[in-house]
């Protein structure tokens, strides 16, 4: 077990160290996330009057939803899609394929290294700044915070697995950057980051229950706020786990098919 895991731990460690070289980026990142939260704060403030409740959210709850949503994004986010697309288009992939490791797990463990870095150098300071400025409510209970942390892990895996799938599309597409950009905006919306899923029109809510995206942001946040609990909580966590596995398997299969079509020009 340790020998099979060892190379992947090394990939995670190297990713961690590589990002250390770009740590300056995270300073601007903190400001960006703060600005994001601030803008949505004012948009919601312009909407809420007194003690209005919209779709089960009062104003303090909405601010908590927005703030925690952006804070956790600092953790689960990664650029695996871009890196894979780069590997494929620049031809670096040729060298990486000669390694006796799974390309998918290499990318996922690099993403894990990246997320660990982000957790320490990005999530903590961003969270501290946002919590100082905005009135963010604590998790509903001890059990909801525990479940929240578990759902965050699933959010990370689901996000990374989707990025892996998108990155592989570079085998077939010349301009994969457009696809990456579209995915970026679609996930911002469909994950519930910019607006809670239950604000969606009913038909879209029903659709979204059959999609993995709501498990990236909306569900972890609903768990955090105690809006999902009890029996429902267990089933939500199970569905998240199932999505994580399904998307990893889909990635494995897609890579298996796509590598046969891979044409490397130089490298």
């Amino acid at each position: 077990m340790t020998t099979t895991l060892a190379p992947y731990l090394a990939f995670a460690r190297i990713a961690f160290l590589q990002i250390l070289a770009y740590r300056l980026r995270y300073f601007t990142g903190i400001i960006t996330y703060l600005v994001n939260v601030t803008v949505y704060y004012f948009i919601w403030k312009a909407i809420y009057r007194g003690d209005t409740v919209i779709q089960g959210f009062n104003f303090p709850q909405m601010i908590t939803y927005v703030a925690v949503g952006w804070i956790i994004r600092t953790f689960y986010y990664n650029n695996v899609d871009r890196e894979i697309a780069n590997d494929i288009q620049q031809g670096h992939i040729a060298g990486k394929l000669t390694r006796p490791v799974s390309y998918q797990w290499m990318q996922i463990s690099q993403a894990a290294g990246e997320s660990l870095f982000r957790l320490m150098m990005f999530t903590v300071p961003t969270g501290a700044v946002i919590l100082l400025i905005y009135p963010v409510q604590a998790p509903r209970s001890v059990s909801s915070s525990g479940a929240f942390l578990i759902s965050l892990l699933f959010a990370f895996v689901i996000f990374a697995a989707i990025n892996f799938l998108i990155g592989i599309c570079a085998v077939y597409l010349q301009s994969v950057l457009g696809l990456i950009r579209a995915k970026y905006f679609l996930i911002e919306l469909l994950s519930g980051l910019v607006i809670p899923i239950n604000f969606f029109p009913d038909s879209l809510v029903r659709w979204s229950q059959w999609l993995p995206f709501q498990h990236i942001s909306y569900m972890p946040l609903m768990i955090y706020m105690g809006k999902v609990g009890g029996k429902e909580l267990a089933s939500v966590l199970l569905v998240e786990c199932a999505w994580a596995l399904a998307l990893l398997l889909a990635g494995k299969w897609f890579w298996h098919v796509a590598r046969l079509k891979l044409i490397v020009q130089g490298g």
Binding site: I47, I54, G178, R181, F185, L189, F199
Partner: peptide
């Protein structure tokens, strides 16, 4: 894909005004 990104970026307003 560019059009999908545009539609998604417009989604916030559309959904918001579905409720307010």
């Amino acid at each position: 894909t560019s059009f999908s990104a545009t539609v998604a970026s417009f989604g916030f307003l559309y959904i918001l005004f579905h409720r307010v």
